[in-house]
Computed example of a mutant assay.
Amino acid sequence: MASPLHLPGVLSAEQLHRSADYLARAQEEDGVIPWFPGGHADVWDHVECAMALTVTGVLDPGHAEAARRAYLWLDGSRHPEGGWYAKYRQGAPVTVLREANHAAYPAVGLLHHLLTTGDTAFAERLWPVAESGLEFVLGLRGEHGEILWARSEDGSPGDHALLTVCASVHHALRCGAALGTRLGRERPEWVKAADRLAELITHEEGLFSDRSRFSMDWFYPVLGGVLRDDAARARVAERWDAFVVPGLGVRCVSDQPWVTAAESSELVMALAALGETERGTRVLRDVQHLRDPDDGVYWTGYQFAEQVRWPVERSTWTSAAVVLAVDALTGTTPGSRVFLHTWD
């Protein structure tokens, strides 16, 4: 029998299960998982929640079924011209904007699901979701091979590329290619596009819109697998003091006294990929002040100058990020290899 997910000295298996329960409770009848019960949803965060439920679903059939329903919702809600709408409420779109990172991320989730469950038949069934999402993304390539951030309401591509988005798309292209290989559907063009994104992120960072005040632009090249080993360690060290607040977690932006559990957890996953589990465990321990002791749900963030939780919400994807960070640190499920970049 599989071992229960836990992080000794930080989070027990029961605590993590309670956190994931929140995601299942928030899930709507059609399978979509909103930011909080009754709130809006977006595909990227929806997939993150599905991955967390897949992890805890190893030992909980209810969570496993919730994850499957979440992926099936993706299939039923696809835009006929590729991608997904950027925002949904009660399952209905509230904008016609379609974002690149949303369209790409299902490929990460579906490889994660296959690695965790071994369910090849489900992966075959959902392959068109990954394929159409990534083909939509490649349709947003700029002249250098960068991915423009979205397709606007009139159908035109965005006028700029974002480093965080392109790092996430890089990850998704490699996951999609790996998923295709497992299903006998080789996609060398996806690997080539990922290689080009890696070159641009590594050597042409000035090509991207300047969002360097955001911590995600700092660590996403590591989280997305663009930078590895010494190059990744150098990038982490470069701005560690600008973003990491000892005892509290990771800032969302460098110039605001605001830490979030999601950014903290994603940095932990990046550290896990570098084998820095001790430091990652310390960061994850620091952010436990955002855990609601009553039900194990995580508040989104904390404004430490005012000493208040902000925003006053408990986002599903925040609890999901914590679950995935623990799995990355411990390697409990095979799906953790998606964030450790060791699926080959």
Rank of each mutant, 00 (worst) to 15 (best):
R291V: 14
L290T: 06
L271R: 05
H289A: 05
D294W: 07
E278R: 15
G296T: 11
G280D: 08
V287P: 10
Q288Y: 02
L267S: 03
A273H: 11
P293V: 11
R282G: 15
R285Y: 03
R285Q: 13
A270S: 11
G296R: 09
L290G: 07
E278S: 14
D292I: 01
V287L: 10
D286Y: 09
G280T: 06
V268A: 05
M269K: 12
G275K: 09
L290I: 05
E276M: 13
L271I: 11
D295C: 12
L284E: 06
A270P: 08
R279M: 07
G296M: 09
A273I: 03
T281R: 09
V268P: 03
T281S: 13
E278L: 13
L271H: 04
G296Q: 09
A272K: 03
T277W: 00
V283F: 04
E276H: 07
E276P: 09
L267C: 04
L271D: 06
Q288F: 01
T277P: 03
R291T: 12
Q288W: 00
M269V: 06
D292W: 00
H289S: 09
E278I: 11
M269E: 12
G275H: 08
T281D: 02
A272C: 11
R285A: 14
D294I: 04
H289D: 07
D295M: 03
V287S: 08
V268Y: 03
G275Q: 07
R285M: 00
H289L: 13
M269Y: 00
L290V: 07
A273S: 15
P293H: 08
L267D: 01
D294T: 12
Q288P: 12
P293S: 10
G280A: 09
M269A: 10
R279D: 00
E276W: 03
V268H: 02
R279C: 01
R291I: 12
T281C: 08
D292G: 13
A273V: 06
R291L: 14
E276V: 08
M269G: 08
D294A: 15
